[in-house]
């Protein structure tokens, strides 16, 4: 091998440097494009929220004022007061909270039990049960409403009683319940079997193993299911408008936002209603966003461990 001259060495160094620069430039371009894309997507998602927030503080005068863009001239809470009154005030929100909280707790509990049973035990009819879970996931809920309504009407527990909703939650056949069973089943299937086998060898029965070994490991998934369940039940109108239509709930009172209060030119009345609606949206989703902020740590964790594959 011949000796390299100084010129050749310099040439090689220069080329290496070029490659390095190219690599760097490429890396930064890629990350810049990625940032731009993600910022864009975040904007698409957050913009409506932002505009609703700013609208909820405006008066109709602000809307016609060309100098007002997103920050109103004067921050008023009138829209919130009107929306609060139209929705039925504290009673509506406390009713909705009680209903949502109790059904969510029941749903998490039963979905965890059923999901564990389907994931770990072999028994006759287990496959049929899982098939039913999937079937309930695929069918539109209204298919089952006619007879369910009839059943609870013959028990005289309809329209003003939460019994029907609690029964659905306790048997895990309510709103999107089969999705929660499915998630829990997949999660438990992803957990190592050795844990339970060790517990069995040490003499614990299935019930004790479940409570002391499996449950602590499943907390993140349970919180995730609770989040799903709470959010969807809070915003749901399909079940409540059939089974609890005479109870003051957010979903049953939402129509009253359209009713007009006072008199005025029609267009400004429409505009006022629209502003009140924006305030109502803010009031309805505020608890959900708070809940999401607190639970999203568990949410992200359970995603990475959910073992949805397989």
């Amino acid at each position: 091998m011949s000796e390299l001259t100084q010129i050749q060495v310099d040439e090689i160094k220069r080329r290496a440097k070029n490659v390095k620069i190219k690599k760097y430039v490429f890396k930064y371009v890629v990350s810049a494009v990625r940032w731009l894309f993600i910022l864009g997507m975040c904007f698409v998602i957050l913009y409506p929220l932002f505009s609703q927030l700013s609208l909820s503080f405006m008066t109709s005068d602000d809307m016609y004022d060309a100098t007002v863009k997103y920050i109103p001239k004067q921050i008023i809470f009138g829209n919130y007061q009107t929306a609060w009154m139209k929705l039925g005030g504290f009673q509506t929100f406390s009713n909705t909270f009680l209903l949502t909280f109790s059904t969510s707790i029941l749903q998490v509990a039963t979905a965890t039990l059923v999901g564990y049973g389907l994931a770990r035990f072999r028994f006759k009819g287990g496959k049929i049960l899982f098939f039913l879970v999937i079937l309930a996931l695929l069918l539109p809920p209204d298919l089952l409403f006619t007879h369910r309504y009839s059943m609870f009407r013959s028990l005289d527990q309809i329209n003003d009683s939460p019994l029907s909703m609690l029964c659905f939650a306790a048997t895990c056949t309510g709103l999107k319940c089969s999705l929660y069973i499915f998630l829990m089943r997949q999660f438990f299937r992803g957990m190592p079997k050795e844990l339970e086998e060790a517990a069995y060898v040490d003499g614990a029965g299935p019930a004790k193993t479940f409570v002391s070994i499996m449950l602590p490991g499943a907390v993140s998934m349970m919180v995730t299911v609770f989040l799903f369940s709470f959010v969807w039940q809070w915003l749901d109108s399909s079940y409540t408008t059939v089974f609890m239509r005479e109870v003051n709930l957010i979903s049953t009172k939402i129509g009253s936002l359209d009713s007009t209060v006072g008199t005025g030119i029609t267009s400004s009345v429409d505009l006022n209603i629209s502003l009140i609606k924006n305030a109502a949206i803010m009031m309805i989703i505020a608890p959900l966003i708070v809940l999401y902020v607190f639970t999203q740590r568990f949410f992200v964790e359970s995603i990475s461990r959910s073992g949805l594959v397989g």
């Binding site: 389907l118 035990f121 287990g126 309930a136 059943m151 306790a170 048997t171």
Partner: peptide, 23 residues
């Protein structure tokens, strides 16, 4: 295994019969 399988899934067995299959 069978026994505990039925115990764990019993809420849904009841629900599936009363609130899914019959309706």
């Amino acid at each position: 295994q069978k026994k505990y399988g039925y115990i764990f899934t019993s809420p849904f067995i009841v629900g599936a019969i009363i609130f899914i299959l019959i309706p």
